[in-house]
Amino acid sequence: MDVQVIANLEELKLSGKDITMICHDHLPKHLFQNLKSLEIVSDKSDNFSIGFLQRFHNVERLKLRNSSYKEIFSNGEVEKQAGMLTQIKSLKLWELSNLLHIWEQCYKLDSVFQNLETLEIWWCNNLINLVPSSASFENLTTLEVSYCQRLKNLVSSSTAKSLVCLMKLRIDGCKLMTEIISSEGDVEEDEIVFSRLKWLSLECLDSLTSFCSGNCTFKFPSLEDLFVIDCPKMMIFSFGVLSTPRLREVRKNWGLDKGCWEGNLNTTIQKLCNNKLPPMVPFSSRFLYLRLLCHQ
């Protein structure tokens, strides 16, 4: 092992076997002092070992992929290692087929991810909730959730209020998701402002009926790009007051086709819903139909 080479590493990928080996070796305390990005793959453990991060004092980007975790952060470990998690700016969870939750509802981890800027979750098919309703992400700029088949909503209205820095939101292929923001309790009037959100994409969401089914007021003062693609049950964007002063179209595909706009967002979504193609149209016919629509 070339200690000097390891000491200069800024990116590292480890397997579950590598973790076991490192934990049993008496390595220098500051061996990984320059490491900024850590990826862990093929770990057969039920839980991610947060204590293992003690060896990586300056890691800012953490990616966990193709592992057996049922839970990422357990309360006992987080209380001891909270300082290690506050340095994480990017967290990516990919292909964690056993994952049920990132942490349980009863855990109070509000401040642990105060510096998190990017959260990406892909192909976690058993994930039943993203984060507890008490979770706060005040510095998050990018949130992407794709192909998490058991998720029924993304975040609570309380968590949504904390997303004051969010600039990009993409939800794709979550077949059971009925709404993006879940309303809480009997709150009749609530206001959520996504002050910096510029880009929003809702794709292949078979069960989505609206962005939020509650009576929340939503303000999107910076939103310019909105994609609503293959969301067959989406009849309205939201039921409360809605403000999108910079939005000029809703795009229904990734092509160069001009988007749709009917004066306001709810009316536009209703128009797109009424113009949806009939089911079971062959792909070639569907493509031709879309081309004809573009030339009308």
Rank of each mutant, 00 (worst) to 15 (best):
M1Y: 12
A7N: 13
L14D: 04
G16C: 13
I22Q: 03
H26P: 05
H26E: 15
K29A: 11
F32S: 02
K36M: 00
V41C: 12
D43V: 01
D46R: 05
D46F: 00
G51C: 01
G51D: 02
N58A: 09
V59A: 01
K63T: 15
I72C: 01
E79L: 10
K89C: 00
L93K: 07
W103P: 00
C106Y: 14
Y107S: 15
K108D: 15
T118G: 01
W122L: 07
N125P: 13
N125V: 10
I128V: 13
N129I: 07
L130M: 09
S134L: 09
N139T: 01
N139W: 03
L143C: 11
L143E: 08
S157A: 15
A160E: 03
K161E: 08
V164G: 01
D172Y: 14
D172N: 15
D172R: 13
C174T: 09
K175F: 12
M177D: 13
S183H: 12
V187H: 12
E188M: 07
T209F: 04
S213C: 09
V228F: 11
M235N: 10
F237K: 08
K252P: 08
L256E: 13
L256F: 00
C260Q: 11
W261K: 04
K271H: 12
P278I: 07
F283R: 12
F287M: 06
F287H: 07
C294A: 13
